[in-house]
């Protein structure tokens, strides 16, 4: 009959009206400044720079390779390379960025910088309360504002950060093994003429092993 649908609709809105007072799963609004939604792991907005250790300047993973600067579609990254080298967190001397600026008013949150970075140095942040009264200077972030610790990265994206950490550890282990092998090879090379000179060595490997160890020890030192 005509009007049945209207009555049904009126009933539905009445149920919603009454239900919003009694049932919490109807009224799903989170009243933002006082209440907050639980953080979502996959959230991303603007990039930040990861550093290891306690000192942000020394621990910055970025080596100023400028790949992200070149790949950035809206060109919001500005990097100035250093002329000298500084030891990174692992003690290896590296070029570092003397300036690393991101204009987050230009950034389009595409995450391409993160994907191209070979050093796991740039990651996406979840911080969204970035309002400022200065729309030019206030939205241009420099190195210091961008640098955030690896621990912070773990709190915002735990799964992703764990993956990154294991990958880095693997790479480090590989690099260490390679260095070890290289050192061993070098030591063997060094040991071979000595053994030939001596002409009396029955087990050169037995001699070479301690040498390699000391060589590695020297390198570590």
């Amino acid at each position: 009959m005509l009007g049945e649908g209207i009555l049904k609709g009126l009933g539905e809105t009445a149920r919603n009206f009454a239900g919003s007072f009694v049932s919490a799963d109807r009224l799903t609004t989170i009243q933002y400044p006082e209440e907050r939604a639980a953080p979502i792991e996959a959230t991303r907005d603007f990039p930040f720079l990861v550093y290891d250790g306690a000192d942000w300047e020394a621990g910055l993973r970025c080596v100023a390779c400028q790949i992200c600067e070149k790949e950035c579609p809206p060109k919001c990254i500005y990097i100035v390379k250093s002329t000298d080298k500084k030891p990174d967190a692992l003690g290896k001397p590296q070029i570092y960025p003397t300036r690393f600026d991101i204009d987050i008013s230009v950034c389009m949150s595409c995450q391409i910088c993160v994907e191209v970075c070979p050093f796991e140095a740039i990651k996406m942040d979840t911080e969204f309360e970035l309002s400022t009264t200065d729309r030019f200077g206030g939205l241009l972030y420099d190195r210091e504002q961008l640098a955030k610790s690896n621990e912070y990265y773990h709190t915002i994206h735990p799964t992703e950060a764990a993956e990154v950490d294991s990958r880095l550890a693997e790479e480090k282990a590989k690099a260490d093994a390679k260095a070890k092998a290289a050192a061993a090879a070098a030591a063997a090379k060094a040991a071979a003429p000595a053994a030939a000179a001596k002409l009396a060595a029955a087990e050169p490997a037995g001699v070479a092993a301690p040498v390699a160890k000391t060589a590695e020890g020297e390198k570590q030192g």
Binding site: N16, G19, S20, T29
Partner: peptide
């Protein structure tokens, strides 16, 4: 307020 409640919001 009433419309809000009908649409399940404050």
């Amino acid at each position: 307020k009433g419309l809000g409640r009908m649409q399940n919001r404050y």
